[in-house]
Amino acid sequence: MNLDLTDLKLFIKIAESPSLTQGAKRACLSPGAASMRIKSMENELGEGLFHRQHKGLVLTLAGQRLLIHARKILRQLEVLKAEFDHRDEADGASMRMYVAGFSAFESTQRRLVRYLADHANVAIDLQQRTAGDIVRGIREGAVDMGVVVGSDPVEGCASITLPVLNYVAVLPRHHALVASASLRLGDVLRHPQVGLATDSTLCRLIEQQADIDGIVAQFRIKVSGAESLCRMIAEGVGIGIASDAAVQPYLDVCGLVARRLDETWARQQHMMLVRHFERMPRHVTDLVSYLSAA
C-alpha cells in the first residue's frame, strides 16, 4: 500500500470540510490536484472513500474506517515526535479542543489567554460542541481534549477533574439583592431577567429549578454573550444569571457585582477528557496540567 502522510492529511482535511474545495484549500492544494490524490487513494485501497453528492462529499463506510485509522496514525506520529524532540516548541504545536456548554466555553477562553501569551508558538482550535461530539471525537482521535459537565467515568476516555464552574446572580451595585446574606434562584427570578440565549445548559438548569420552585421567569430579553448581558443589566433592563468566569471581565466597567447563588445546581463540576494520558504529546500534557490547576 503506497499511501503516505500527505495523503492521510489531505483525506482528513477533506473529510472534516463541507466540500472538497474547502478541504483542498485547507491543504494548500487546488481542487483538481486534491481530487486526483483522492482518486489515487481510492484506486490504491480498491474502495470508494466518498459518495459524491450534489451538496458535497459524504464519507462511505470505507471512508469512515480510513478516517479513524488516519487520525490515529497522525496522533501517534505527534506522540513519537514529542518523545524525541527536545526543542522548546521550535516548530510550534497545534491542538484541537472541544468544550460543551457556553459558560464552560467562555471560562476556557479566558483561561487560555494567559497560556497562549506564554506559549507564543502554540495554536489551539477551540470549538463549542455537544458532549456527544466531544466523546466521539476523543475516541476517534479527532480531538486532543474536551471539556464536559460531570465527574462520572466515560468509557473509552481518560479524565481529570477541573475547577468547579460557579453560576452567579449579576446585579447593579445598588440593587436590593446585593445586601442579601443568602441568595437563591427564587429571589432572583422574582425580578425581570436578562438571559443568555447561547447557554443552553444554564437555561435548562434554570427552567428545571424554576419548575421545582413553582416560579415563572420573566425574561425581557435573551442575548448572545456575557458582555451583552452585563451591558443590558447596567442599563437597567433587568438582572441575570451567568457563570462567574464569563462575567468577571465586565463587572467593574459596567458597575455590576456578582453574588453566588446558595444552590447546589449553581456549582457545576466539569472534567477534561483525553484518549490516553500516558500517550499524549508533551504540549497536550502541558495544557491539560495548566487547565486542571485550581
Results as ranks from 00 to 15, higher is better:
P31I: 03
A33W: 08
S35V: 07
M36F: 12
K39D: 10
M41T: 02
E44R: 10
E47A: 09
H51E: 14
L57E: 09
L61H: 11
L61W: 13
G63M: 02
R65K: 14
R65S: 08
H69A: 14
H69K: 15
A70T: 00
K72L: 04
K72V: 00
L74A: 01
Q76S: 14
E78C: 04
V79F: 15
L80M: 14
K81V: 11
F84T: 13
H86V: 07
E89H: 13
A93T: 10
S94I: 04
M97S: 08
Y98S: 08
V99E: 00
A100D: 09
F102L: 08
S103N: 04
S107V: 05
Q109R: 15
L112C: 07
L112P: 07
L112T: 05
V113H: 15
V113A: 12
L116T: 07
L116V: 04
L116P: 06
L116H: 07
D118R: 15
H119M: 05
H119D: 00
A120F: 06
I124K: 00
D125W: 06
D125M: 07
Q127Y: 12
Q127I: 11
Q127C: 05
D133I: 02
I138N: 09
I138D: 10
R139A: 08
D144V: 00
G146V: 01
G146Y: 05
V147N: 00
V149D: 10
S151V: 10
S151A: 10
D152E: 14
G156Y: 10
C157N: 10
A158N: 11
A158R: 13
I160E: 10
T161A: 14
L162K: 04
L165H: 08
L165T: 12
N166E: 13
Y167Q: 02
V168W: 02
V168S: 04
L171D: 08
R173T: 04
H174T: 15
H175A: 00
A176H: 11
A176Y: 02
